[in-house]
């Protein structure tokens, strides 16, 4: 019978991460002799320790995680902050306008403390008693003339509070484009995206389609995801999303039996469009894997060599060297 409340759980945890002192080790071993539950837990934990280390490609995976966080969280927060700044600036402008009207009235000889008249439209709409009671406005003092006289009191069009929003806010048709910085996916696909690959007016649709394809892929509907990625490439060929979609398509097709040639075409499309892109490493790996499956040894060897030469510290480099050794006569 075990006595679980007495289990030295802290020793169990430390036994896997650091050396125990002699006394601690003895105490733990004595406990393990009696407690089957702790014995099972420790051995199972050690079994996990053997396989939970870093995996090849984790660095790239971490970068992809960041790209998604940037796209779905950081940019939205940034847009929200800009919206709040714009609303705040509009409120300040409105306040200044009201204040300026009051000052103008005072300058024109109204007694201090008089009520600022409601706009004519409001008076007409609601029949506000105060509006009816105000003294008649002279013809030379129309309500519409006030804004022009207020211009001296208003902040310049590019007030400091508005400057960042004005400089960063994109054109109306591209509300979600990450201008002026490069889109995350351009960075993901290579911060040095080629001239032909740039955000376009249709980038909004491309982004939505790309997100939809990602969601579909996550659901495990690979056939539909493949179709959506293909549609993205076809309809928005110059968008950065389409560039990344080539690699995504390649990976999806690579997992499908008999689609090696199709996958190869996708990886090649990426490498042609962005030979120095950040996904070039993965595209090269995918290309070499496709060629291996297709039995095109010479091209496969050349691709592995290119991968090793360009990315000697790549997580795929070891695999490439092994495969090159197998291919060498």
């Amino acid at each position: 019978m075990t006595t679980p409340s007495l289990c030295p759980d802290h020793l169990l945890a430390r036994a896997r991460t650091s050396a125990l002192a002699d006394g601690e080790r003895g105490a733990l071993e004595a406990h393990l002799e009696q407690c089957g539950a702790c014995r099972a837990a420790l051995r199972t934990g050690q079994a996990f320790d053997r396989v939970l280390g870093p995996q090849p490609g984790d660095d790239q995976l971490a970068t992809r995680l960041w790209c998604e966080v940037e796209r779905q969280v950081v940019r939205r927060q940034s847009r929200r902050a800009r919206t709040i700044a714009a609303v705040a600036a509009a409120a300040v402008i409105a306040l200044l306008s009201v204040t300026s009207v009051a000052m103008l009235r005072a300058r024109l000889g109204r007694p201090s403390g008089s009520v600022v008249p409601a706009p004519a439209s409001a008076a007409a709409r609601g029949g506000v008693p105060g509006a009816r009671a105000e003294p008649p406005r002279s013809p030379s003092e129309p309500a519409r003339a006030v804004p022009s006289q207020l211009s001296d009191h208003l902040p310049p069009p590019e007030a400091p509070a508005m400057a960042p929003a004005a400089s960063e806010s994109p054109a109306p048709g591209r509300a979600s484009r990450p201008s002026p910085s490069k889109p995350a996916r351009v960075r993901a696909a290579g911060g040095d995206a080629p001239p032909g690959v740039r955000p376009t007016d249709d980038g909004e649709g491309a982004g939505a389609l790309f997100s939809a394809a990602n969601v579909t892929r996550r659901r495990g509907e690979t056939a539909r995801a493949t179709e959506q990625y293909r549609r993205l490439v076809k309809e928005y060929p110059s968008s950065p999303e389409a560039l990344v979609a080539h690699v995504a398509l390649g990976r999806l097709l690579l997992a499908r039996a008999g689609a090696g040639a199709g996958a190869l075409a996708e990886f090649d499309a990426y490498l042609v469009a962005a030979p120095t892109g950040a996904l070039a490493e993965e595209a090269l790996f995918g290309r070499a894997t496709c060629l291996m499956r297709l039995g095109r040894d010479r091209e496969e060897g050349a691709t592995w060599r290119q991968l090793v030469e360009r990315f000697p510290r790549s997580v795929y480099a070891e695999r490439a060297r092994v495969r090159l050794g197998e291919l060498s006569p």
């Binding site: 396989v51 995996q55 984790d58 995976l61 971490a62 995680l65 960041w66 950081v74 927060q77």
Partner: peptide, 28 residues
């Protein structure tokens, strides 16, 4: 404070821990 570089470093730093946790449950 919405410093994107800091968020990037943070995500890349915690990513191995997240991956380890996910792999432990789903399989490596």
């Amino acid at each position: 404070r919405q410093q994107a570089d800091a968020m990037r470093t943070l995500i890349v730093t915690v990513a191995p821990a997240i991956l380890r946790a996910v792999r432990s449950v789903l399989g490596t």
